[in-house]
Structures are given as structure tokens and as C-alpha cells.
Design a protein around this nucleic acid. Sequence first.
RNA 1: GGGCGCGUAGCUCAGCGGAAGAGCACCGGCCUUACAAGCCGUCGGUCGCAGGUUCGAAUCCUGCCGCGCCCA
Length: 855
Amino acid sequence: MPEKPTLDGLEDRWARVWADEGTYAFDRSATREQVFSVDTPPPTVSGSLHVGHVFSYTHTDIVARFQRMRGKKVFYPMGWDDNGLPTERRVQNYYGVRCEPSLPYDPDFTPPEKPGKQQIAVSRRNFVELCETLTAEDEKAFEALWRRNGLSVDWSHGYQTIDARARAISQRAFLRNVERGQAYVSMAPTLWDVTFRTAVAQAELEDREHTGAWHRIAYHQGERSDGGSHGAQDVFIETTRPELIPACIALVAHPDDERYRALFGTTVRSPLFDVEIPVLAHPAAEMERGAGIAMCCTFGDLTDVQWWRELDLPNRTVINRDGRLLRDVPEWITSEQGRKRYEEIAGATVHTAKERIVAMLQETGELDGDVRPVTRPVKFYEKGDKPLEIVSSRQWYIRNGGREATMRDEMIARGQELQWHPEYMRHRYEDWVRGLNGDWLVSRQRFFGVPVPVWYRLDDEGEVRPDQVLTPTDDALPVDPSTDVPPGFTAEQRDVPGGFTGDPDILDTWATSSLTPQIAGMWTVDDDLFSRVFPMDLRPQAHDIIRTWLFSTVLRSHLEHDALPWAHAALSGWILDPDRKKMSKSKGNVVTPMGLLEEYGSDAVRYWAAGGRPGVDTAFDRGQMKVGRRLAMKLLNASKFILGVGVPAGEPDLSAVSTPLDRALLARLTEVVQKATAALEGYDYAVALELTEQFFWFFCDDYLELVKSRAYGEFDEAGRDSARATLAAALRVLQRLFAPVLPFVAEEVWSWWQEGSVHRAPWPDIHELATSAEVDPQVLTIASDVIGGIRRAKSEQKLSIRTEVESLSVQAAPAALEALREALSDVRAAGRVRDVELVVSPDGELVTTVGGPTA
RNA sequence: GGGCGCGUAGCUCAGCGGAAGAGCACCGGCCUUACAAGCCGUCGGUCGCAGGUUCGAAUCCUGCCGCGCCCA
């Protein structure tokens, strides 16, 4: 035990001991029942560390430490998320390269010292290797932070979401979905980001207010020549997307709409292009919106897709994947004038095409009245800044219940089976599942990521046959179809008629992230391990990715294992800056966590984090860190004091606890143990800490002061031994109660007098403080109240706390006085009281009168 | 527009049907042989607003207002 205890340096010292001694190593001989397994969220290593990481990961660590002390074999791995756009960008910029899957692998490639102005194209395998090199550096910084933060992770169990194991597992799970018909390829209208040139899934969408304008446009009834002014025979529609007139396939109105009933079944001719268009009825048309009759195009929005599908309309897409109109005049525009007009907009961007079309409509007089500006919600890719287009393309989907009611019900049932912390987060999941409107689009037209592990046959004309999918053998995984060859083919047959072609796409990052329990638990790689940890106990994560990460993980596990991936989901809140805004890098209000750990100490920062209840956003608060530091300091000093008084070695002998005050103290602590344990079992670490902390300060400020003299041996031996045994027993319990939240200081004080790590010591049991004799809790409360009264009197008279009190009069109910008598010698010693008078109070109220204190 | 959560002391929050609480801050004290990076004490609130249920409401119900998140 050091002369002058300090918090400085505890982190380094104990982190090293824990690593050397394998304190947190997973015991893989344990059976599933003995294991507590955690599906740790893999942090995005390319992102910067911020205090929110420390916050939420601490929560999980507290739970893991609690479970470990309860005797569970804790499986607590760490993964790194280096799959996806942030890493792709970082690798590109850092090395000055770009991923070009058509290139062959170059084993000798080394990136230039400094990135050049021109990006160097490299193969996908080279790109992935560079990614692994770069993220290895980022991971070191994360690991150093986590170790200093005190995460009790078993660092021998780790993964990267782009490493070979993760790629193989991701592809294997996907192929098994394909085999069972749970994943399928389809040529379908797809929401498309023209900037990123990739398809976008429902989970990545967001609605944003976008300014547009209503254009009132004439369609013409009957035979007409090209264009020209409109007449009485016109049908007016209102649209914000006049550039889609060449893609128009129908006009649609509600079946009950009297205004258009006569037109159903007839045709009209489109303005400018003079294409014959049917007028149809469909209930999705809104009578109140615009003119009540809508222009259905391929594709302006998702309603168009619905009409196209349900009304069995032709596909007349005019917008390319680059956001420009088709360069060739579409075949369905037949009139000479129409074809000439299309040439005006061929190859133009959507924006330019709109301007030109409007100009032409004004010229022909087919635009009626003024353009009316409107702001309305438009779908965007969450990372994009242009409205999404809808294009037709070949894509892979995984069934998620979005198109099948039975499966949707199954997914909802899974959500009900899962235990949510806090409970109300369940709604987010259910709302999401109920709102699904299609299957999960998993293919992305990006270059960096886990490749879609399939090839397609090419027919004799060299056309791709999406209906003839070629898959790899299982032992070949992971594969890259852009360089690897499907079974039964040779490299020479690539991209030649009668041969094959590789699927150029990659899988959505969530398609891999949704398998973190399988990746961490080594599904299909080490099935023995997997059987011991899966289904896992806990998924900790943030509440904003319930619809993505949580849902997709439940889905994959449901499809593959017909089980939940974990029993519990604990949703952490966010860190808010003092202005109640979410802390994020883009706002520039991020505090670096390492600096905090150094300034206040890790235990202090963990203390602050532990105050954030599950699911509740928490304010960044240095004040709480100071309080945490004080608490850690107090635990050092209180431990030093108790051990300095001299306590029996080894297990405390409770038979020596003979004094009523001591028994009452242990009884109260037992209650704390019972409540804190229940709270932690329910993932409520904040309540557990609060209870422990409240008791601890009472223990220090009142109980320690009361028994000090007795413990020093100023009275009789029995009283002394009773006090010392109580102090020892209480301290041993308190140090363990604090261990999950304050692992460093708890380990430090434990090491002064106990064997082994406190983090492997058994969690306090409610029976371990039980004494045989009857306990009167009032002894403790009245002793504490009276000592408080004496302090108040001294404080009011601005006297030193040491001042002797000549006489003390206590009025109280008879039972209370009886209890006080049991602790009177302690009270007198602590208050420096000479004479005491106990008076039965008529109303039972406690009155403490301090007489004649002399300075 | 829908769903969820939150409005309690200057600040951060607990309490969620039986006398308004904690910590921090503020203020006033105390060198007390574990800790002055400590300790003791004081001050401080129509519990967002309005109704209702109840013997009793911060707590339950309804409706507003404000903030946040998720989704349209």
C-alpha cells in the first residue's frame, strides 16, 4: 500500500497486468450456458475517435465486467468496420489510388510516397490490401484508447469487416440465401443516386424538402398533328417533372373521379412528342393533388413504379444512370417533329432538359399559365446531394418481409422475442418492419467491398443471362468474380460469347455487418467456438441504426439459424454538447477522448458515462468527470484508512461482529448489494452505481467517523474487533461493487490486501454479510442523525468540529432512544460529547440539543 | 402528417399514486492523526400549461405548448 495513494499511472500499470495475465481471456472450454457473449459494435476505424465511443462502449464494458464477476465466461471480442465508403475514400486520398476491379492483381504494387495528382488505378485485391495496411494503423489508435479506457475485451478475438474471414462468411451466408431462394436477382426499377452511381436501399433513404415547380401541361385528345396550340379537347395534368414527358406511359386518375371517368380507356397524345398515351384508373391517384390526374412516367417516383407494375405498362426510361437523358431518340417517339424535339434534349442533364422542355412547351402554347413554385419532400440518398432517380437495373435482393406478409409477421415476432433496453426502443423496430415496402437491395455499384460472389452465363450473342447464375464452391471463398473464374470455366472464357462474366457489384456494407455475430463467433470457420457463443447474449448499439444494423442482423440470423442473433439489445443514447446538439465531427464540437482520459483519469470518465442510462441522450459534462475523480480518490483514501487501522487478513470473520451499529451497517449494505445486482441484471448500470455511491459516501462520512475511536481500540477489545471485522467485510464488498465502473482504482485497492484480480473475484452475494443476531436498522439511522445534529450545532456556531460538547440532550421516541443507547459510546466519541441526556419525546420527533460547547 | 421519448432547484438528472430529492454551482464555516484534490452546514422548485380520475397526482388519463429522435 503506497504512502500517498494516487490515481496517476493506474491505467498503464493495470492495463499491462491485465494483458500479461490474460485477465479477460475467454475460456473456450465453457458451455453455452456458462457463457455471456457480446456482439460488440465494430467501430469505423476511418472515422475519428470521439467521446461518444467512450460513452457507449463503457456501458457495455460495465455489463461485461458484472457478468464476469457473476461467474460467466465472457466472450467479448472487438471488430473493426473497414468496409464501406468512409474507408474507400480514405484509402483513395491517402495513397492516391482508385479501385478498378477489371485490373489484374499486382503482387508487387507499392503506393507512391506521396499521392500524385492522378489517381493510380489498382485491382480490387490491391485496394483491399492497402485498406488493410492503412486501417491497421487506425486500429492501433483505437486499441490503445480502449485499453486505456479499460474495456475488458479479449483482444485475441478480433475481426475486420473487410478481412478474408469476414468476406468468406459474408459471401457464404449470401450464397446460402441464394440457394434457399431467400436472395434473388431481378431486373427492376431501382432508386439510383446519379452522383455515386449506385443503387440505394430503403434503409439509406431520407426525405428532404426540395424546391420544384408545378407545370400545368396539355395532353391532347383525338388525332392531331405535331404540337400546336391546344384546344377544347385538351386534358391538363400538373407535374413537377416536365422533362419526363418523353418517358410518359399513361395518365392516371382515381376510379371514382367523375371528372375523368369518361376518359378511362381512351388515349391522349403527349405534348411536344405526340406519343399516344392511355388514360387509366388507379386508386393510388390522389383526387386533391394537382389536377387530380397524374402523368405516369418511367420513373418519376415510387407511385409510378407501382402503376407501371400493377397496370402492366411498358418501360420507357429516358434517364441514364449518369443522370442524363438518353443520347439516342427513343423508338417510341415516331413523329418527325417529336424526334427533332427530342434531339434538343438528348444527352442533357435532368436540369437542362427541364429548362429546354419548358421553353418548348411555352413556344407551342402547351404550358398553361404560370409555373408555380412548390416545396415538397423528395427522396435522397442519405449521403448524396441530388434527388434520386429511378432506373432499371439488375440487382440482388434479400427477402426481408417487405413483400410478404407472413415473413413480415415473422420478423415482428422476432422483435417481440428480443429483450430491449430500454423497452420502448422496440417500437422503432416494429415501425420499421411494418413500413417496409420492398425486399432488401444488397447489391451496390461500387468497387470497394465484399464482391457479390456470382458469375453469369453469356449466351451465344455475348448477352448476359441473369437467369443463369454461376456460383463458387464453398472452399473457394472468398472469391472476387472480377478475377476468379467460376467452376467448370477457364479464364479465356471470360466475357466472350458462350462464356461467363463476373458480377461487377459489391454487397451492401450492411450485408456484411449484419453477420457480426457469425463473424465474431467464427461461424463455419470454428463451429465449436460458434456453438459456445451463439446465439449471443447482448447486442449493444446506438438507437439510430435499429432499422439498419439491428434489423438486418435479426433478419440474417432468422434466415440462417431460425433464431434471434442475441437475447438482449441495449440501445445507448448519444452525447450532446452543452447546447443540446448531437456531438459530431461535422459540427466541429468533438472533444478528443484520449485527452479526457488523461486529464480526469479513465475511471472518472467511465463514471460520467455510467450516469447515462440506456437509451437516454446525455450531456457532455466535465463536472461529472470531476465528481468521478473525487469518488475514485475517495475509494483510495478510504481503503488506505481502513487497511491502516488494521483489519484481519483473509476472509472477514463475521462472528466477531457483535455491535448493533456494525450489524445495522452490514444489513444496509446487504440491501445495496441486492438492489445494485438487480439493477445490473436489468442493464441499469446507472442505478447500480448511484446506489453504491450513495452508500459509500454515507459509509465514509458517518459510519467511519462513528467507529473510528472504537476501531482504534479506545474501548474494549470486542468492540474493536467488531468494528474491524465490519470495516473489512464492507470494504471487500464495496471494492467489488465499484469494480465494473471504476476498474482501475478498484483493482488498485483490491491489490493492497487481496489475492488475484478484483475483476475475477465473485460478485458480492447478499448472504455474505449476514450476521446471526437480530438487526435493528434504527441504531444506524439515529446514530447518524444525532451526529448530524451535533455537527450542525458546531457549524452554526462556527466552531471546529473537534470542539468538545459539554452536554447533549436527545429527545426521541422510546424505541429510537433504545436504539441510540446501543451506539452511544460511538456517538459520544465521534461528537466529543461529555454528558448525554436522553429524553422521551412526547410526539416522537427527534430533537438534538447541544449545550455548552466550549471553544 | 405518424410513432417514440423528454420538459422537476441556476446546471446535470433521479423519483413515476401516499409529506418535493441527489450531485454540481452559489453562499457560510471547519487545518478534523484516511482524504483541504477533504469535511460540515445553509440557501434554492405553483414538478411545461389546462382540464379530468382519486380521500390523495410530479407520478394515471385527455388536450394543448416546447424540445429531440425515428419514419412518412
